[in-house]
Nucleic acid binder design. Structure first.
Lengths: 240, 240
DNA sequence: CGTCGCTTTGAAGAATTTCAATGCTTGTGG
DNA sequence: CCACAAGCATTGAAATTCTTCAAAGCGACG
């Protein structure tokens, strides 16, 4: 992996200025300087390490710089329900702002580098930098729009449509980060895909097989190549 | 209907001060005064009237004062996919903030009174009133959390669980507004419930019948009485 | 070399959808 | 005032999709 914009180890977040990875908005230079001081950088997370647990106090939000994060709610019976995957350039953790505690647990799917944006700093900045404030609200709004899109997907569609839509979503999001949109490695397992999409592992596996035999994708375990984006698009858009 | 806190016709939004209907946060009195000047009140909407369409410019968000609103995405084939129902005291329209255009169409399910909170005003206020700014972000965060909860529900559960969860959700939300939590009239049709929950009308209808024969609810068309809240709770929480 | 984690495949069973038909309520025009 | 159309809800029976249960393959890693 790690075709990401900021290499993992010895990075300085000055990259965030060149490539608007952490906060992908065109900010004034002046604003960007201030922003740089706010972002805290930690050491990369290993697979299965968590950023925060359900119930943890909300400290702020996080931007994925490389790797991938999954967010999951824990059901009453202890099983997990994945509510989102976050790829490089995306922000997660907003769920904790409402009542001061996270409703999700956030876990690294692979070796992952993140920036944190502490709540107080965000608050201070929101006061002094109108652009940044608007940007934060736009980011939250985007999360809402994405979740609702996902809702629409889950309510309406068959297994094939869901998986087609997920693959296209990942493709688009990688493209936005100037990464390859047609060849990529899935950061999550079949089981995690199934969990997220409300399908069993077996169904996910079967759909991948079917997609291959139809020539829509090539899949070698987690390495995916999209061969017929238009057809996938059509598939995901049609109602069953 | 219209057991809502602010009666429809001749209202002044001073009610919003007494009963924190429009913005349900404990604000300083001083802040509340300023807020009152911001909220615009229009005439009540009739059933099927829309607040905004997909693609409309984002002008701000709206609070439901009485009645009910549905938000829906239009699929490429023209069918609608309901992404949320908004009851008295709840805020909708955040989806348009991200890119300046609404991704949903918002429609009144019945005669509905709303307040609008214009974007510029919200922006000004966010600058001068830190509490209010935090409150806006909390509201957005709550929308995210609710949508994600819904995602979890749709991914994991059977028809009965989905419907049980929807009934409980409505019940809780009415209770928060000091309305009856066990007897209420659904503002939406079976078809709309099905659309929202990813089920067919027929399945929705059958589940209502099943719930009645099990003594969990009494239902006369849209008039619902919850008879066994704990059992519904248990049902909605168990995985299938 | 064997175990562990993940993926794939098959066959049977269950839940939901689809198709078809009927009933109930409301509103409207004759 | 009645009749009829339109919209919504309900019910049955057949068809389909997805899940469940069971088993086996593959690859990585100690």
């Amino acid at each position: 992996m790690s075709t990401a914009s900021c290499p993992n180890g010895t990075t300085s977040c000055h990259n965030c200025r060149m490539n608007p990875l952490c906060l992908p908005l065109a900010l004034q230079d002046r604003d960007m300087n201030k922003l740089d001081q706010v972002i805290e950088r930690g050491k990369p997370l290993q697979r299965k390490q968590t950023v925060f647990f359900v119930g943890d106090n909300y400290q702020g939000v996080y931007a994925v710089r490389s790797g991938a994060i999954k967010a999951a709610i824990t059901n009453s019976d202890g099983t997990e329900q994945i509510t989102g995957f976050y790829l490089p350039g995306e922000i997660f953790g907003w769920d904790g702002l409402a009542d001061g505690r996270h409703s999700n647990t956030a876990t690294a799917l692979e070796t992952t580098a993140i920036c944190s944006i502490p709540a107080e700093r965000m608050d201070e900045l929101s006061m002094t930098l109108p652009d940044l404030r608007r940007h934060f609200m736009q980011l939250m709004s985007r999360e809402i729009a994405v979740d609702q899109q996902m809702l629409a997907l889950l309510s309406k569609s068959s297994a094939e449509q869901r998986i087609a839509a997920l693959l296209l979503s990942i493709s688009n999001r990688l493209a936005r980060q100037k990464l390859s949109a047609t060849r990529f490695r899935l950061p999550m397992s079949r089981a995690e895909i199934g969990n997220y999409l409300g399908l069993t592992v077996e169904t996910v596996s079967r759909v991948f097989t079917r997609f291959q035999s139809k020539g829509l994708i090539a899949a070698d375990k987690r390495d995916i190549t999209l061969l017929a984006v238009e057809q996938l698009q059509a598939l995901s858009e049609d109602n069953r």
